[in-house]
Every structure is written in C-alpha cells, then in structure tokens.
Amino acid sequence: MSKVKYYYDSENLAYRKIETKRRKKFAYIMLFLLSSALFGFLCLVALINTPYFETPKDKILTSELENMKINYQLLNKKVEVMDEALTAIEERDNNIYRIYFNTSPISDEERKSGFGGINRYKDLEGFNNSELVINTSKKVDRLMKELAIQSKSLNEIVELGKQKEKLLAAIPAIQPVKNEDLKRMASGYGYRSDPFTKIRKFHYGMDFTAKTGTPVFASGDGVVLKADNSLSGYGNHIEINHGYGYVTLYAHLSKYNCRPGQRVKRGDIIGYVGSTGRSEAPHLHYEVIKNGEKVNPINFYYGSISAEEYIAISKLANQENQSLD
C-alpha cells in the first residue's frame, strides 16, 4: 500500500493530505509499463543469443554446420590422397615417359602455378567457416588444374607412342632374304673388287646369293617408290620409302610382287631374286639409304637374326672379296 503524504497548511494551522493528479498517475503508470517492456525485450534478446536458449531450428542448423565441417575435413583428406597419387603420376611422366620419348618434361612451376587475376574466393569470405571452405576450394581447384595439365601430357605421350610405334615398324630391321634361302653372303658394304673391271671400288650395299625366284622381303613398313629398271646397272629393282628419312633398294630381281604407290609391311614379299642388270650371278643387291646417304645395311638386321648370326654375317661382310655387281 502506497504511503500517504501530507503537507502543513500554515494559514489554517493544520496538516492536509497531498492529492496526486490523475494525469500524473497515468503518466507514471505508462512510464513503468514502457520501461518494463523494454527491459523484457532486452532480456529476451540476451537469452536468444546465449547458448542456453536454442530453438529446434537453431539446433538443426548447428547440427548441419557440424556435419559440414566434418565433410570438409574428410574432403581435405581425400584431396590430399589424390594429390599424392597425382604427384606420383607426374614423376613417372617427367622421369620415365618423357625421357623415353626424348621430349622436355613439364616444369613444377607450370604444374603448380596458381590462378592469376581477381580473387576467385571473395564470395566465400565473411562467414564463420570461411577459412576452411576457402582452403578446401583452393586445393580442389589446384588439383583440377594439375589433372587437366597431366591429362594433356598423357595425350601427348600417347601420340608420341604411336609415332614411336610407326617409326619402329618403318625402320629396315630384317634381312631381305631368309637365312635358310641363302647360299652365302657374297659381299658386304665397303671397298670390293668389281667383277667385270677387277678395279677396287666402293660397294654401297650387301649381296645375298640365292637361287633365282627366291622370295625377297620388305625390311620395313613403307610405300613402294619404284618397281622398274630405270637405274643403270641395277636391272629390275624396287625402292621403298619407309619415312623418317629411310629408303631401301632391292636390285637384280627376276620379277616384282608389288607396284609403285603400294603400301607394304615388314616381311611382305615384294619380289624375287634374279640376275638382271649388271650382275654376274643370281643374287640380291640390297641398300639402305638414311637421309639421302647410303649406310651399311648390316646395322639394320636386329629384327631377324640372333647375336651369333650377326657376328658370322659381319665377319663375312667385312671380307674384302669380289662383289657380284
């Protein structure tokens, strides 16, 4: 119960009761209610922003946020594992594949370079977990770039492999006449005595003695340039362009088994041994030309003879005897 207040009336020499005006009372009541409402609102805001007061929605959001953190941590670990695997592939690419195919390795600067220009992750800034999300995004972007570079590199290696395969198939690598069909290896590359003039001169091929009609084989993949007798002294002869600077010539044939423009494979029968042109007896005169220069054919038999056979043929070829053409 509120206290009753009095004042002393000096004129009437008596105490009188102080009466509060109704308007003032109403103002006091309104002020009290307003201050109470404001205080209550502030308390509610404080409670809402404390961890002790969570709505069901807040709990769901908190749980989702924790799950997101765990997922990003797992993603980071997976990215690290993939990065290790990619690094191993990059090392093999640079130190094995590219060395084998004699091409320049890809530098670490090119593989690991970042992204220039504007900040790619600006939209991810300003959140509670921005650092975690930005770091993961950077790792994923860098990994994707390295994968793109490595994919391009492997495509290049595949093309180099195809070219290498074509090169290996094109190089003259077998004897043009089988060993079992040979009577003997009559003459090799080097200075020999001419069978007609008896003058010592350089012999630019190898002579394989065999019966007339013995099959002659293409020593590498290529395209037939000639199958005629247009070259003086060679009689019926064939020229094959193998590409990569290689050309082979097969002379003194009895007949052809190919035509100009025809594509042949190593081991295909292209003609038959004979004694046409400037020839003393049935044999095959065989030449290998590399970049326009006639080279020793004995260096190109690694695809058809053993090491022992190579040594035996080499000894015979190096004997300075008489050639057959």
Rank of each mutant, 00 (worst) to 15 (best):
S137A: 13
I70M: 06
E146H: 08
S130F: 15
Y15L: 12
E109K: 13
K138C: 10
L147V: 03
P105D: 14
L147I: 04
K112S: 13
H203Q: 05
Q262R: 06
T50W: 06
Q322F: 12
F202G: 00
F217S: 00
G243L: 09
L65T: 05
L47F: 15
L31G: 08
G190M: 04
S279K: 00
Y121S: 03
H283G: 04
E54D: 15
N49Y: 08
L284Y: 01
M206S: 09
A85H: 07
K162C: 11
H285V: 01
T50V: 02
L61N: 02
R16V: 10
G267E: 06
N257A: 08
K178R: 15
H237M: 14
G267M: 06
N291K: 14
L284W: 00
K139M: 09
D141A: 15
F217L: 09
G233Y: 04
L75I: 00
K198D: 15
V4F: 10
L42H: 09
L86Y: 03
A251F: 05
A46C: 11
N67I: 08
K5A: 10
E308D: 05
I313Y: 03
S254R: 03
H252E: 04
R184Y: 13
C258T: 11
F32N: 07
Y189A: 01
G222R: 01
I174N: 05
T212L: 02
T62A: 15
S323H: 12
E293K: 11
S107G: 14
K255Q: 02
R142K: 13
P215F: 12
R98H: 04
D83H: 01
Y72F: 12
L143K: 02
D228L: 07
D268W: 01
F41T: 04
V158M: 11
K152T: 11
E239Q: 15
R98W: 06
E64S: 04
I106T: 12
V133G: 00
T248W: 03
D221R: 05
V273I: 07
S323E: 11
